[in-house]
């Protein structure tokens, strides 16, 4: 994979880590669309605890893994809620990224390697077929060239 691709992955992962690690603490704590719909018919107090009425949400049962150390997006044992939520988010992003990249990498189609060093021939065969070499000697594809033209314009 080219350096550009690594940079994109690293940048994207950093954004996800910041969102889950920091911004998550500013998320709304109100019930989401599903939960609020299931609460219809019940009356709730300021903390969204059911205090009366009858609604589907009352049938909710314990989660099988509710005692997981990361249950409810917090790290058990960490009192500071900002750190607890943020750390659970960071761990969640890293675990999801690891499972995702690992799993999809194992599933990927292994084919002929292209001259760009960016993996096997991709679906946009026309673009890859137009692989050429730019002035700096780096192999570029038609899409690279197109973007550079666009960026210049």
């Amino acid at each position: 994979m080219k350096n550009r691709s690594w940079a994109f992955l690293a940048g994207g992962l950093l954004v996800a880590l910041l969102l889950a690690g920091v911004v998550s603490n500013y998320a709304s704590s109100h019930p989401d669309g599903l939960d609020s719909s299931l609460l219809k018919g019940c009356t709730v107090d300021a903390d969204d605890n059911i205090v009366g009425g009858s609604c589907p949400a009352q049938q909710a049962r314990e989660h099988e893994l509710g005692d997981s150390p990361l249950a409810d997006y917090g790290v058990r044992g960490i009192e500071n809620s900002f750190v607890s939520t943020g750390l659970s988010g960071v761990l969640g992003v890293l675990v999801t990224f690891a499972i995702g990249v690992g799993g999809f990498w194992l599933l990927r189609r292994r084919g002929t390697t292209s001259t760009t060093g960016d993996g096997p021939a991709t679906r946009d065969a026309t673009a890859d077929a137009a692989t050429t070499t730019d002035a700096t000697g780096d192999p570029v594809t038609a899409s690279d060239a197109g973007r550079r033209t666009g960026a210049a314009g």
């Binding site: 988010g89 690992g102 999809f104 990927r108």
Partner: peptide, 22 residues
């Protein structure tokens, strides 16, 4: 392919992160 696989992992991680942002 070799390009989409890591991108898909990133998409999953990004969705996990943004799902936390009610």
């Amino acid at each position: 392919d070799d390009r989409l696989a890591p991108m898909a992992g990133l998409v999953a991680a990004f969705i996990f992160a943004v799902q936390m942002l009610n």
